[in-house]
Each structure stands twice: as structure tokens, then as C-alpha cells.
């Protein structure tokens, strides 16, 4: 089933600082919804272990994450593709940074597909969960940036 997630936030930081963070794998691992580990595979390619819990269902996915259309300091696109026992997930998305009265605008957009039990049981909850995960990811990002020594 298709899932669309989109949400915008703002950060009280210069755009370059935010960019530096989101292009750093360790920080990226924090922003990605429920990413448990991120191992670099090569140029802008990673193995990402993602664990999703939606309602009564918990599933682990081994995914391949790649970044493309990278435009410093405006954002990049990403692609995720992976399998797990509870189903499969794939998707494409974009992180956009923009000028914002607070400092930097941060927009997360993703369109994905999930299958298996998460689609079967979780579909009513999946977008709500996604929004919660995006909020959590953004919170993590904010924390990460503000605690990274300048």
C-alpha cells in the first residue's frame, strides 16, 4: 500500500549547520524514522536497519538507502528499498532546506510502499505513526545539532 509522509519544521540555526548535520551518517541515522543502524556501503549508499512498530506490529527491515540529487545546502533526495519478515518497504523522498524566519526551514517528504503484515494490520495507523516518527526524527536532529560542538 502507498504511504505519503510530509511535514515541515523550522530550526533556529544557520542553513549550513543543518546541512552539515543531515549529510553526516550518524545524524542521518537519527533522523530516519526508527533507524537502528546505518553502515556506509560506498558513495552515498548505506545499509540501514529500520525497525518499525505500528500498533500491535513490530517489524525489522534490512534496507538499502541511497542519496542522490545532492545540492548543498539545499537538500537531497533519497531512496530506500528493503525486505523484512513482516513485509517489504520501498520508497523515495526528499529533504529540503530553505530560508525561514526562524533560521532554516526543514521539510521531509516521502512516498513509500509497504507490504505484508504492516500493510494488513497497520494501514489505518501507518500515516499517523509516520507523522509521529517524523516528529521524533526532527527532535533527534535538533538535539544532535545543538549538542554537536560548533
Amino acid at each position: 500500500m502507498a504511504v505519503t509522509l510530509q511535514k515541515s519544521y523550522s530550526l533556529n540555526l544557520p542553513r549550513q549547520d543543518v546541512w552539515d548535520a543531515i549529510i553526516t551518517p550518524e545524524v542521518l541515522a537519527e533522523i530516519l524514522p526508527n533507524c537502528k543502524s546505518l553502515e556506509p556501503l560506498g558513495d552515498d549508499e548505506f545499509n540501514a536497519n529500520i525497525e518499525i512498530k505500528i500498533g500491535p506490529i513490530k517489524g525489522k527491515f534490512n534496507t538499502k538507502l541511497s542519496l542522490f540529487d545532492i545540492h548543498e545546502p539545499n537538500g537531497y533526495k533519497f531512496k530506500v528499498d528493503g525486505d523484512g519478515v513482516k513485509g517489504a518497504m520501498s520508497g523515495e523522498g526528499e529533504i529540503q532546506l530553505s530560508d525561514h524566519p526562524d533560521g532554516t526551514g526543514f521539510t521531509f517528504m516521502a512516498k513509500g510502499n509497504v507490504s505484508g503484515i504492516i500493510a494488513r494490520v497497520g494501514q489505518r495507523l501507518i500515516e499517523a505513526s509516520g507523522k509521529k516518527l517524523m516528529d521524533q526524527g526532527f527532535k533527534n536532529l535538533k538535539q544532535k545539532i545543538t549538542t554537536v560542538p560548533a
Binding site: M1, G55, P56, V114, S115, G116, I117, A119, R120, V121, Q123, R124
Partner: peptide
């Protein structure tokens, strides 16, 4: 995909 595959 069966989207309502539970009693929920």
C-alpha cells in the same frame, strides 16, 4: 496487499 487483515 490485503489492507484489513486483522479483526482490528
Amino acid at each position: 496487499q490485503l489492507l484489513n487483515g486483522s479483526m482490528l
